[in-house]
């Protein structure tokens, strides 16, 4: 599990212009720079917001990554995919 590497990738894409451009140009090559598991790489490259949220990625960071890649106009699409915090809390408490 390399949870921190996923968040580092998201942080870099969200906060660094060069990283954002590199991810948009060739996401697969960009992701190779991070020690991601196969599952993590698949979720990142497929922009699997639901899976990444349930994996425990900070939702603020996940949203920032999503909009950095897809633009702020993609927020409705993001929100249609991402689960609720309540559902995550119920999973934890089960």
């Amino acid at each position: 599990m390399s949870f921190g590497a996923v968040e580092q990738l998201f942080y870099d894409v969200s906060t660094k212009r060069n990283s954002r451009a590199a991810f948009r140009e060739d996401a697969t090559a960009f992701a190779e720079k991070y020690a991601l598991s196969e599952l993590e790489r698949d979720m990142v490259l497929s922009m699997n917001a639901e899976g990444l949220f349930e994996y425990g990625i900070n939702p603020m960071l996940l949203m920032g990554f999503w909009t950095s890649v897809n633009g702020p106009q993609s927020m409705p699409d993001y929100l249609s995919r991402v689960p609720t915090l309540t559902s995550q809390l119920e999973t934890v408490s089960e």
Binding site: N58, P59, L62, L85, Q88
Partner: peptide, 9 residues
């Protein structure tokens, strides 16, 4: 406020 979660808004 809910940020980046399905409840956002």
């Amino acid at each position: 406020h809910w940020v980046g979660t399905g409840e956002m808004g």
